[in-house]
Amino acid sequence: MMPSAKMLPLMVAGGVVTVVVGFVLVVLIISTFSNPPFGLGNAPAQPVAFPHSVHVAENNIQCEFCHRNVTKGEAATVPAVEQCLFCHQNIDGTSDTASAIAQTEIEKVRTAFETDQPINWERVHRLPDHVRFIHEAHIRYFTDETIPVKYGINGEEIVESPDVAQTCTICHGDVGNKVEVQPKTGQSLKMGTCLDCHRENSVPTDCTVCHK
């Protein structure tokens, strides 16, 4: 049955409302499930193209070797340039497996060290100012063998105590096999994520544990 001419404006109006509301809903739903929303939080270009995959997956360097504060304090911290030079004094990228890019990037690090210039990395995960997150405490928990069962961030049961590097992947995902680290590499790091995991593990969920 053809709608009457009178009903047309009503139908048009209804259609517009449906489209607008639908669009808003879709945007909100996508932004809820995609992390970060629409790739807005993709890590920007780093000053030195540092491939985690080469260091971790290929050369088996443990996370805490470079992020050495991760077992000692709140922040994991990026390594000092000096520390890169531990290896890169000798490894200059001229071996046949390395590409020309590797050579130039390693050269950047060496130059920085020689000229006494700190490297300005771009932050990938930004913790809000009102949140206290202590890496050390989390690693201590997951690596503690006296606790029989622990639960991962998605509720998965962890029976074997992981080592430090495995603990990192619980939240940060498989960084070791990624060339470029992006927020989406790991878990969505929202308050609910923290809260779910704390509840699973029966550890304190008092607000002041994380909020400052």
Partner: peptide, 14 residues
């Protein structure tokens, strides 16, 4: 603002 288990009245700013 709420009361936590440690006898503190807590204000969560955010």
């Amino acid at each position: 603002t709420y009361h936590n288990d440690e006898g503190m009245n807590v204000q969560i700013y955010n």
